[in-house]
Nucleic acid binder design. Sequence first.
DNA 1: TTCTGCTCCTGAGGGC
DNA 2: TGCCCTCAGGAGCAGA
Length: 284
Amino acid sequence: MPELPEVEVVRAGLARHVTGLAVNAVAVHHPRSVRRHLAGADDFAARVVGEQIVAVRRRGKYLWLPLSSGDAVIAHLGMSGQLLVRPFDAPTELHLRVRLGFADAEHDLRFVDQRTFGGLAVSRDGADLPAEIAHIAPDPLEPAFVDEVFRQRLRRRRTGLKRAMLDQTLVSGIGNIYADEALWRAKLHYARPTETLRRPEVDRLLLAVREVFAAALRAGGTSFDALYVNVNGQSGFFDRSLEAYGRAGEPCSRCGTPIRREVFMSRSSYFCPRCQPRPRRARW
DNA sequence: TTCTGCTCCTGAGGGC
DNA sequence: TGCCCTCAGGAGCAGA
């Protein structure tokens, strides 16, 4: 389940392997994977073939590849998307959705996506932040992220803390796994009303998010199964360092209380009921 | 305007 | 062995 660290690992890998290459072939194997490109698969291919990939950039969980034409290929991995650099004669993956071939290279770029929540599209705004993802807020590792702006916007919300953390228009890059991990580190309950957060608590949360992201980046990301891999098809190791997510029933490493799992927003939330006590007035 | 809940999707795993 | 059900969750959208 790719979140910021995983997407950053993919971005760095793509930057090494595809920057400067000219696309000479595009094959769309599943139309759903280009559904955000409203003009359709043929137009998607026509806009990419013949163009050179100038760079590989990221905002939150989105990637975009500016092209020599001034357009950009936008990519989101969804839950199970992979961008793989493979020898062009390597066997076809079961869930191969889109394939880009290159002139003067012995490898191709494959978008493989089991659950098809991810996808590719072409934007006309390749030079800067594409308009299609302009609503995505900066992530806490970006220089453009201003802590004070985040504090104010968070405290103006009238919702639960985890729901706010997952809102990519408020802060980007955080998904279910790292939200639980950061909340555990910051000793905050996921249903804490955002308007009741004090400044030191928001600062603690931001520090926790940055620590979790940094640790995950060092480990190459989190991988519970084969669904998250880098461009070479290798898994990360951060799942071995998780303190809360996926550890229901196991003792909290701080206090020994069993980690609890609750369903929230139709997904699992893991927390320590002692370190992260439920607020008297919870917001879901 | 803001917030909430539904929907999309596929395969693994468990129960019968 | 085969069928059915549940679970996993990012993000857009509709409705309150």
